[in-house]
Each structure stands twice: as C-alpha cells, then as structure tokens.
Design a binder for these strands. Structure first.
Lengths: 243, 243
DNA sequence: CGGGGACTTGATACTGTTCAATTTCCGTGG
DNA sequence: CCACGGAAATTGAACAGTATCAAGTCCCCG
C-alpha cells in the first residue's frame, strides 16, 4: 500500500493487532509500517483463566491485547495478592519485566482473548531506526508509571467508596475510547478482584455498589453495571448528604 | 581511550554525576562515555524546600540526583496529596513526564541537593546509537514501574505497621547500597510525609514507631533511627505476640 | 437440574482516624 | 548568647470506616 506517494498516514492501521497503545499516534511511512507489522505477527489466543505468563518466567516479549480482557497480579510470599491492573484491547502487558529480564507478575485472561506477541529485542532494534517509534515506546512506559502513581494516590488517600467510584469512571472512559457505551457495561472481574485492585474486601465492594445504587448513582445487577449519574460519581459520593 | 585494546570497562565512572542508576551497569567504550558525559554536564543545586520542577511544567529533561534527597508528590484537585517517592543520590526523577511532555508531579528537595540535568531528546538520540544505553534506559523506566507496583501491594494489602516496617527496611537497603550504615540513619522527611507516602496519618506513623521501639525492633529519637532487629521488622511485627 | 462459586446483607470487632492537649526541638531575632 | 515562637512529634480518648464472621440467596456451568 505504500506504493502510493501519499503522505504518511496519521496513524497506523496495524494489520496484525488492535494496537491502540503501540501504533495509533505514530507517524510512519508504509515501509516502516510493514516493519512494525512484521514485529507483531505472532498471535495467540488464551481462554478464560489461562495464564499469558507467570511471575518468574523469562522475559522475551511484550504483549498487546487484540481482543479480550486480562488481569495482572503480584503475590507476596505469604499468599497475599494484589491485582495491579485490568487490561483491555489495545493495551500492553509485560513492561514490568524489562527491568530484570523476568516477569514480576502473573497475567491471566478474564475472558477468551487474543494477543500479539512483540519480541522486545526486535522492538528495541526497530526503535533505534525509527525515532518516532522510540519516542512512542518511551511514552508507553512512562504512561504506565503515571497510571501506577494514580493508583497510589487512590489507595493512599481515598475512601473505599471514592476508590470504587474512580474505578467505575475509569472503566467507563476506557470503554468509551473503544467505541462501547460509557454508561452500560459488563464487569469481567469478580468483586474479590475489584477489591484486591482497590485495597478493600469483597464485602466492602458489594456494599458500596449497593449503596451507589440506593442513591441513584448506578444500577447494578451481578456483573452488569449502568452508570446513571456520572457527575455524582465524579464528585465522590458523600453518604452524609443523602439521608 | 579505546586505543588500548583493553576490554570495555565494567562500569562507568561518570565524571559529571553520581549516576548509579544511569551509568553503572552499562558497558561502553571511552568515546561513548565521553558522549554520555556530555549529556550530563548540566548541574544545578537546590536548597532545602526548593522545587526541582512543578506539576504541569514542560518536560525537557530527566534529573539524576548527585547528592541530597528529594520527594515527589502528586496533588488531587481537592488538595489531597500523595507522596509518590523519596529519591536519593544516584536515582532519577522525572520519568512520569515523558508520556505527556509535562511533569505530573512536584519534586522538592528535602535537603540541599545537587542534580544533573539530562536533556531527554539528547538521551534518546544517543540511545539510538548505543544499544546498551538504550537497554539501560528501558530498564530504568521498567524498574520505576516495578517499584510503583510494589507500593501498590503495600498500600493495598498491608497493615499500617507492616507498611512502616517495609519502608524502614527499604531505606536501610538503599543507604547500605550507597555505603552508609543500614541500621542507623537520619530520616529526611517528617512523620506527615512518611504518612502520606504510606497512606496513613502522621499520628499513626508516630504510634507505630513508638510501638516498634517498645518492642525492641528499633530505637528512634525524632529524625534519627536505629534498626535493632532487622529480621523482626522483616517478619512483620505482630503486636499480639508481645504482651 | 443439581452443585458450587459469586454475591448480598447483617451483626460485631478492630484498625486507624480524628480531635485535643502537651512536649520537644529548631531556627530566628533580640 | 539566650529567649522566644512555631513547627514537629508524642500521647490519650472517642469515634468512624472497614474488616471479619456468618447466614442466606442467586445464578451460572456442567
């Protein structure tokens, strides 16, 4: 397709994967896209519950989610676990492993999913030749840092209900960015997993959801959620105002 | 100096800065070191309380701490703040800003400090030419991700005393790595700052420290701390065992 | 259609917060 | 050099938010 002398496309229609994170903002020529496509041609599918990788495994590749939903978790020796993120289509998993050449978390499919494997050595090599790809890789790594620090803020200085509201709004935004409804969606994870992510117990998650519902902020039934009052959620729900 | 046929040095004695993070594990020839030195020749000093940068400021450079001590913090609009880290000599600040070209946190000197400024565009350019530098940059970014996720684990699934014990042990390790005593050191930050970092109130920090002292794990007076029982701290102090 | 995990809800316990009173220390200015 | 003022830290008591324990319901999957 790069036969046409047309200017480089504004963003890449990555033929191999749904690489929102990796491809979208990069300005490349057709040949360069081909090189990138080469990089991302390894595809795999994972069924619900399967591991994409396990903590301790040797690091070779990053993984871009084409379709589906994953969670990542780290485990303390005493068995305590912390879910460090929920990843959806277009997002990248595995960046924690670059530092030590071994994965530091488990990645597990929450529904049947398809991923692109991106051999990291090749990505590094190509990014040496394509400054805009290099730039973009750095941005992606940095974005993960910013995301994690946002969660630190959440965990460190917000109440259980505020954390849950922020979580729902974050999902909402990410679904919207993918063309799905921002106000009605299906939770792929259990209350326990939400709780682990947000630093609270599953009962507290359940109570907070019920509470939101009673106050007209959401309607929830099992795993399906409808956000009814986005500004109300954003404002942080204050139970004292509502008796 | 690569005139000599001697092998590349095992690590770099960075003439400009105390770049433990940036330089140490990189294998480079003399010329290459010179290029890197060029990159890090901008030096500045900051007095206690001064800002290295503020949230929102345009991103141009990373900063490597030569000497001194910094904190980084993010602020929620409602005034809540979360301290995201305490950085000491040899560590790098500013990586969060790569993603959006603007700093997302404030960096403030906790004591008089000296930093190297590393223009990021130049670092990217040089790392395109030196694969081992590129690799190392990626490792540093990834290490920050791992660090942040460790703090998420802390905040999400540990008790106040466990968090504080982990914090003290982390400081201990980092001082030890710099040739200082791992068991006797001076806290550069207030109880309130420790609390903000660990997601608890200053009173809780103070009580926990007193509690550790009463149980012979540490001795503490104001800002000076002595760790008396590292294994005890590591095991996580359980107040029920000790009546 | 049956079994078991996921979820909800209630009662109670406990960790950590809040409010408040003191004490200690450090830097500043007389 | 000492005195002073204010921030930092400690400690206590009451309170709030969340965890824990327990019982029961609902579904989803086999």
């Amino acid at each position: 397709m790069q036969k046409t002398a047309s200017p480089a496309p504004l963003h890449i229609a990555c033929s191999n994967c749904n690489l929102r994170e990796l491809c979208l903002p990069v300005n490349l020529t057709g040949t360069e896209i081909d090189q990138l496509d080469d990089l991302t041609k390894l595809k795999h599918t994972y069924l619900r519950g399967e591991h994409l990788f396990r903590s301790g495994a040797k690091f070779t590749s990053l993984y871009a989610i084409r379709t589906g939903f994953f969670k990542t978790r780290i485990e303390h020796e005493d068995g305590r676990e912390q879910i460090t993120g929920f990843q959806m289509a277009g997002e990248i998993i595995g960046m924690d492993a670059i530092s030590s050449n071994a994965h530091t978390c488990d990645a597990i499919a929450l529904e049947d999913s398809e991923v692109c494997e991106i051999p990291f050595a090749s990505l590094e090599a190509l990014s040496r030749e394509l400054p805009s790809l290099q730039r973009h890789l750095h941005r992606i790594l940095s974005r993960e840092i910013v995301r994690d620090q946002g969660i630190m803020l959440l965990l460190g200085s917000m109440s259980a209900e505020e954390r849950l509201a922020a979580f729902l709004l974050n999902l909402s935004q990410r679904f919207a960015a993918r063309g799905y409804s921002p106000t009605a969606f299906h939770l792929r994870m259990t209350r326990q997993e939400i709780g682990s992510y947000l630093g609270m117990k599953l009962e507290t998650v359940s109570r907070a959801l019920s509470n939101f519902q009673q106050n007209g902020l959401i309607s929830v039934n099992r795993k399906s959620v409808r956000l009814l009052d986005l500004p109300g959620l954003q404002a942080g729900f204050d139970p004292k105002q509502s008796l």
